[in-house]
């Protein structure tokens, strides 16, 4: 059980809350309070739109503990419209083949289950093929 660890990231997991650098205007996710582009302090909150494109993807066939029930599942690196890239599972794919460049959007889903039915559930962002305009 790692309750505080997941709780303190709730804004990131549920809403892709990152930062914007007041010095160079770069958007930052995950938040790190120091701009990775210009090195200045960057603590201004900024919420990403959740829209992006698949930069690359793979299929996990052997999963780490807590993810076995989902195998095989697709994990992508998604390039967000605002610039940052995020690692996330793709979901709601249906029969649609995944392609690099495919437009996707963020949804909130169950990510992981710890142990048996009494274990903690971790929710967070996944991405699905874009349906919103």
């Amino acid at each position: 059980m790692e309750v505080p660890r997941h709780w303190r990231l709730k804004q990131q997991r549920y809403a892709l809350v990152g930062e914007v650098c007041p010095h160079c205007d770069s958007k930052i996710f995950p938040p790190r309070d120091v701009c990775p582009y210009c090195g200045e302090e960057a603590k201004t909150q900024y919420t990403m739109s959740g829209k992006g494109k698949v930069y690359s993807y793979t299929i996990m066939r052997d999963a780490p503990a807590g993810y076995e029930e989902n195998i095989p599942y697709t994990v992508a690196v998604v390039a967000l419209e605002e610039g940052p890239m995020v690692t996330a599972q793709l979901t709601d794919l249906g029969d649609k083949p995944v392609e690099i460049g495919m437009p996707v959007e963020m949804v909130t889903r169950r990510i992981r289950q710890d142990g048996d039915k009494h274990g903690m559930l971790v929710y967070g962002y996944k991405f699905r093929p874009a349906v919103r305009a």
Binding site: H6, Y55, S56, Y57, T58, I59, M60, D62, A63, P64, Y67, N70, Y73, V75, A76, V77, V86, T87, A88, Q89, I100, I111, R112, V122, G124, Y125, K126
Partner: peptide, 17 residues
């Protein structure tokens, strides 16, 4: 790791690209 990636998956992503 929390989103579900493993070390082999990380290499898979890089290889795909």
């Amino acid at each position: 790791a929390i989103p579900g990636l493993g070390a082999n998956g990380q290499a898979g992503l890089i290889m795909q690209r």
